[in-house]
Each structure stands twice: as structure tokens, then as C-alpha cells.
Design a binder for these strands. Structure first.
Lengths: 238, 238
DNA sequence: CGGGCGGTTGACTCCATTCAATACCTGTGG
DNA sequence: CCACAGGTATTGAATGGAGTCAACCGCCCG
């Protein structure tokens, strides 16, 4: 499963640990695209592991504007933070139809007490998520629109590669330009303009649900993309 | 110590757990203002607890621009993320002279294995940090300059209150307008202009290192500030 | 066939940046 | 004692990047 694949980039999991993860198979649930599975302010204290499909976590402001915090792809946690906090500080919406497995608060506490290495791996995943949010913050705060879009798509590509859903040629992307706009703090109109620029420069093409990197190396250069923060360089703990 | 005070907002720590924290007293170090104690890219895997003074974590872009991710005040962790990741994804600079205690990676692993509740408290602190970063992301992405500045200062005030260093009247603030600008993704010039607006509206005054909330309630209304994400509403675990 | 959603493009507007000049304070050295 | 430099704060004028408004297209689907 994608989570095992992702966590293996950090710790080499033992057979026992993998079986703990596999045992979650029973609590599998599905949600349809567009219907939130977690609401900002709710106090469920349940997290999920995304098994298939894409989701996004976001916050709504009082005036109705939306800021997407990040997208989640298979292998990612959903609403992990809300397990520790009193209530969820954000909402989660499936971008496509999704399959998830529930992770109850009690599971997490158990993991902490009984399988410290697994707990550590989860902490790693949380740290990596935070590093991604930080990188988004930097992008929105200091990068101009074109670089921001390019950087965003390169990051998605790198993350998808880790779970075998993309490579340097590109990836299948179910996002509309509105999703992209809400994620990187631009208007959808401007995202469209920027995508045109990038296409005309021969850097990337986003069309019909496919992101194609037309010139990966030049794109990386253009976006100043350094994947170090994704921490995908191999197991730290043997 | 401020960390105990902060963590107590989440879990009621036992005498034993408090003594574990207090035992860190030996590894105390000091750093002078302006000299980074953690560099982006280094792989020390050491974290710190800030005992006194202010620090900030930031990233530098290739073109020299800086984005401050967050400020840390007494009781906060510094570079906690870099313990789990292969290398630090950000730098940490003391804003004032600071005192810290070192937390080695081994300490953290031990805490996970031996004092699960303390590990949980640390996980809570990390989740809260992430929630703050997320709120900054939302601010930079979707709030206009005036609201952003107001929101930022209200958050700092709320955080400082938790460790007894501020209240609804205001707080002592060692930040220059340049720090504020780098934190909220504006230019220093514009921060200055916005501060004038806020002052002229009778909302807040930032002068001579003092932030004074001239009309706290109206300011909260203006900034749409909802402190829920700071999760300061009291212990979750008895 | 009509409606809705997503994408595309142009014209105009505006918020924030940049450039620039001035003021103020502190510490330093002549 | 005063001149000077460096850092910070303040304000004005010009510029520009991104938003808003609006129109139009293509496609899918009921």
C-alpha cells in the first residue's frame, strides 16, 4: 500500500510493523468527490489514511474566500493534526472519489506506546507534511505567480513519483485551475494566464487532466525547485 | 518554566514528567541576537527549547529574499522538525539574545519509548506549531495587508499570554518592522503604512518595542481573529 | 438542446512594491 | 563636544503584478 511505500523512505519497517498497518484494512471507507469528510471546527479526533484518489485540506475565511493548505495523494494522512488538537482547524474535501482507512485516536496512542518506531514514522510523516506547508508559505509569500505555479506542480510530481504515480515526464492530475488557484493564493484567471506562459516557454503543459513536463531540467531551474524538503533521499533508520 | 506552562494547556503533566523536563536544565546554552543557531541544510538533528528571548525560523530563497515562517517565544521548540527529517529545511535566528536547552534526537526517541504521554505532549506542540504555520499560510494567501498585520499581532499576543508575557492590553515586542514584513510577506515600507492606518483607526499602536491594543475587541473583529487554532482552551487529557 | 462547469482571453482597476528622500536615535571616534 | 555612520522609521510618487469584470468557447450530460 502507498503508505508503506512512503514510510519506507524514512524507516525500514519490520514485518510486524507492516502488518500493523495492513491490519487497518478493515476500517475502510469511501467518500465521493466534493463532499467534505472533515469540517473545520468539528471535534471528531479521527484521522484517515488516503488509499486512493486525491483530497485537499482547506480553510474558509469569514468572507467566503478559500485557502487550500495542501493536496493529499495516496499514502498521505488526512486530518492528522485534528487528532491531537481539541478540534479540527481545517476541512478536508475529496477532490475525486476516494478510499480511506480510519485511524482512531486510540490507534495512535497505542502506536505510540507499543510500536515506538511506527510512531516515529508517523511523526516523520507529520514533519514532512509540515515542511510542505512551510514551503507553500514561502511560495505564496515570496515567489511570483509563474514560479509559484511551476514549483507547485513540480512538488506534486515529486510526491507522486514516491508512490509510483508520476515521473519526470509528468503525471495525471485531476485538479481544476480553480483548485490550483485556491492552493497557491492566486485567482483562477491568473493561473490560466500563467499556465499559458509556461506552455509558450516550452516548460510544461497542463491539459485534459495531464501535467506534462516539457523540459524538466529547465523547469526545475526556472522554479528554483529543490526537493530536499520532501526528505525523499532514503531511510534514515536502518 | 514556560514549556511546562504551555504543555499544561494540553496534558496535565505528572510530577515525573515535569521532572524529566526539568532535568534538561543542564544542557543550557546561550546565543546572541542575529547569529543563526541552525542553518538551512545542516544535518545536526538537534532541537532546542527556548527558555528566554525571541527567535525566528526562516527560509532564504536563491534570489536573497527571506520568508520568516514563524517567531518562537519562551516555551517553544526550535528546529523540532529537523530532528525527524534528514536535514533542517530552515534556519533559526535569535531575534534577541536567547537561552535555550538542547534536546538531542536520542532524548526524543527515549521520550517516545519511555514516557508516551510526554511524547504525546510534544506531538501536540508540533501540531499546534503546524496549525500556526497553516494560519499564516491562509493570512498570506487570502488576507489583505491591514488584516494580516492585525491578525499577526493578535496571534503573538495570545501566544505570549499563555506564558504570562502579555495580555489584552498589549505586549513587549522586540521585532523591527523588517521582521514583521518578512514574516507576513509584505515590504517593510508597506508594513509601516499599515501600522499607521491601524493607529489612526484607534486599533493598535506599535511603538518603541511595545504593541498596545488600543481597542482589543474592535481589533479582533477587524482581523477576524479566532484563536481556536491555538488550541489554548485547556487540558484535553486529564 | 439547453444548462453548467471549466477553460481562455481582453480591458480596466487597484493594492502593494519600488525608488527615493528625510528624520531620528545610538554608538563611535576625532 | 560634535561629526559621522548605520540601523530603523516615515512619507511621497511612480510603477507594476495580480485581481476583477466580462465575454466567449467547448464539452459533458441530463
Amino acid at each position: 500500500m502507498p503508505l508503506v511505500r512512503k514510510l519506507s523512505a524514512f524507516v525500514a519497517l519490520s514485518a510486524e510493523e507492516i502488518s500493523v498497518l495492513e491490519s487497518l484494512r478493515k476500517r475502510r471507507r469511501t467518500f465521493v468527490a466534493g463532499r467534505d469528510l472533515v469540517h473545520q471546527g468539528q471535534s471528531d479526533q479521527t484521522a484517515y489514511i488516503l488509499m486512493s484518489g486525491w483530497a485537499c485540506s482547506y480553510k474558509i475565511l469569514a468572507d467566503g474566500q478559500r485557502q487550500i493548505i495542501d493536496f493529499q495523494i495516496p499514502g498521505d494522512f488526512l486530518a492528522l493534526r485534528s487528532v491531537l488538537l481539541h478540534m479540527s482547524d481545517h476541512s478536508v474535501e475529496p477532490v475525486t472519489d476516494i478510499e480511506v482507512t480510519e485511524v482512531l485516536k486510540s490507534d495512535l496512542l497505542e502506536a505510540f506506546a507499543q510500536t515506538p518506531r511506527l510512531a516515529l514514522a508517523i511523526f516523520w510523516a507529520a514533519s514532512r507534511d509540515e515542511a510542505m506547508v512551510v514551503e507553500h508559505l514561502v511560495g505564496i509569500g515570496r515567489r511570483d505567480a509563474a514560479v509559484r505555479v511551476a514549483h507547485f506542480l513540480l512538488e506534486l510530481g515529486a510526491r507522486l513519483s514516491l508512490v509510483g504515480m508520476g515521473d519526470k515526464a509528468g503525471f495525471a492530475c485531476p485538479l481544476t485551475q480553480y483548485f490550483v488557484a485556491d492552493a497557491i493564493g492566486l485567482s483562477a484567471v491568473h493561473v490560466n494566464r500563467v499556465l499559458r506562459q509556461l506552455r509558450e516557454k516550452g516548460l510544461l503543459t497542463f491539459r485534459d487532466g495531464i501535467v506534462r513536463f516539457d523540459d524538466y531540467d529547465r523547469l526545475v531551474e526556472f522554479a528554483q525547485f529543490d526537493a530536499a524538503y520532501l526528505d525523499q533521499i532514503g531511510p534514515l533508520l536502518a
